[in-house]
Design a protein around this nucleic acid. Structure first.
Lengths: 201, 201, 201, 201
DNA sequence: ACTTAACCGAGACGGTACGTCTGGTCTTTCG
DNA sequence: CGAAAGACCAGACGTACCGTCTCGGTTAAGT
């Protein structure tokens, strides 16, 4: 017996296909960002990836499966959480990563899917999961600020997150203006102030 | 005129002229909200409106023209601006109208178009225009607050608007949760506080 | 123009399509003769007929329906029965028409269908029907010969028909040789003699 | 064992495959009879023979080669010629072998190929050859009858053969009826009579 | 017994064609 | 004249099948 490669005892599938899979999913993600879910066509992805459409259909029988796989393959790239010792600084750094996410193909794809093509439950579920992952991290920022005493214990953290994310979203996708560093600073300023106690009249 | 038509209990909706146009544009708006721009098809609108697709094509030769007309027909329903004498109250009222807008078919259609189907410039222009109209009003709220001395003269009004709109947008479309009265109050609280001077440490 | 067109009291459908139908069926018959039933493809027929494949599919949803229609449209061209007063002469004339049938596209199509593609019952039925029609006529020839006393009353008429048809079939399709006038005469001679009483030893 | 021939430095063919080859060709013949030439697919033959399609393609690169090999492998099974001393009896026996041939898979395959799928010249040539072999034998029957004086020297022997073969062909393939013993007797009777002198009126 | 080389199984892949579906144009008829 | 009906074209889509290729694994021969 020629037991080769003990690390892969049996790998009947994807001996030839491994690089192909990556390429296709990458292309699918791009296309998803450009055209949205319903505008995406499997033949187009196949052509862009440089292989025959039948080969794509073989692996992912439906468009949903392809998109789900593409989204899933891009999961787990959580950005490292900032810890500068200052809520303001932390939030600025986090906002930048959020902007980067929304600007990159993956983020655009997720956003388009969430906003416009949320009909398919399978895809929707994955996109939701990605969004939750995206939101779970930053909560730590606020908790640390609370532990430092920089933030009140019952500050509306959830609202702050929604505000930061929503403002960036609105700015980049609705107003279609670039999210500048200045914008982020003004946004974070407003939020940090807003989380504090009411100003004296 | 076939008013009674006993042979057909279900009268074929609106047969000629002006009422037909209204019906079609109304249906087009609904479909736009449901399917988005690229998901909308002229034959489908025709069928839903109860007339032959050729009749629709006669009036609006392209899908763009139909959508543009539909959006345009829904313009000019600017909500009355609140003037309660309190920035907080004014913003709460405004936020409610914004939520109503985003919830209604027209608003959803505009949002979907802006977010996901912004490729066509003609349609995009109209949607932009609607958005600008939606934003022009509320600025008065802040100006009045500044005149009352309730708000600093160089407060970041633009940011405040973006934050309110963005948060509502994020809440309803991304998180897919209902925008409750409580949510709005907390949102406006945060924004009003954020517009004030920095809290004392 | 509103001319009610009394010249066409026919059904309201196929005003544009009437000539198209003929053309398609004609082409289908040709293709059937060339490629056989299973070798025939609807798109190919459409292209040869100069119209879009969807137009063909609209009228005949399946290949079977198209072939059935093509065969049916070619029915009813029964050749006039000869009546020369001589069994030999009658058979010679009839054999010539049989040869013409087998040589023409229609005949070849029927033969190919009967011989090679007899799997589909719908098509098979039509081809069978055509064959029966083709055989019903010639029996009269023998009956008249019997009435004239030229032929014995219990002569094996069915066998004679099978022999004439089979020999022509074998000659033209199996041996692939032309069916000459001389061949026909020798064939009929043999059959006529064979129908008579046994020769004296 | 087939002469292992140690002198042969290279014996690329059939070290392991000898029984496989037989099985494949046998199956191919069956499939040819069932589906005809153009309906036959190499993968299907492979599956029916219980081996992988690549194994079949390795030996016979094209469908034509496979069919040619299948037909060729079935050659040379000439039935022994009858010699009963009576033309009638000889012909009856011969007709039975002809019926057996046409009924068996091999015969049906040859017939289908000759009748319907005669496009490929290579295959066609082999089928023609088989047909010629099938016809060469029976001529002896007539020659012996002539030598016995039972048959006139210038009787139309070729026509008689065509008639017998054609009638059987027509009966079994066109009329799709079984070729009974009675049918054969009546057929031979007619032919034998037909070969004799014209009956006296 | 061990090596070697032909053979076989498995399945990914490109490619072609098919039949379906839908969108948009056009002609003809009806009211 | 406008609306209905629907034939028609165009093109994309997903499926099926074919034939090629490249891997491994196995079998049969030969030192």
């Amino acid at each position: 017996m020629t037991r080769s490669a003990p690390s892969s005892p049996k790998d009947p599938v994807k001996r030839r296909g491994a690089p192909v899979v990556e390429r296709v999913l990458e292309v699918a993600l791009e296309a998803l960002a450009e055209r949205g879910f319903q505008g995406l066509s499997v033949p187009e992805v196949a052509e862009r990836a440089g292989l025959n459409k039948t080969s794509v259909y073989r692996r992912w029988p439906t468009k949903e499966a392809l998109v789900a796989a593409a989204l899933e393959s891009a999961l787990g790239h959580a950005a490292p959480l900032p810890d500068t010792g200052s809520l303001y600084e932390d939030l600025v750094v986090f906002a930048h990563t959020a902007v980067a996410f929304v600007t990159a193909p993956l983020g655009r794809a997720v956003m388009r899917t969430l906003l416009a093509d949320a009909d398919n439950p399978e895809v929707r579920a994955i996109a939701d999961e990605m969004l939750a992952a995206q939101r779970s991290g930053p909560r730590v920022i606020f908790r640390r600020a609370q532990e430092r005493g920089e933030l009140d214990a019952n500050a509306d953290v959830t609202m702050a997150l929604t505000v930061v994310a929503g403002a960036i979203l609105h700015r980049s996708l609705i107003e279609q203006k670039s999210v500048s560093k200045d914008f982020i600073q003004r946004l974070v300023s407003l939020v940090v102030r807003g989380l504090g106690p009411a100003p004296k009249p």
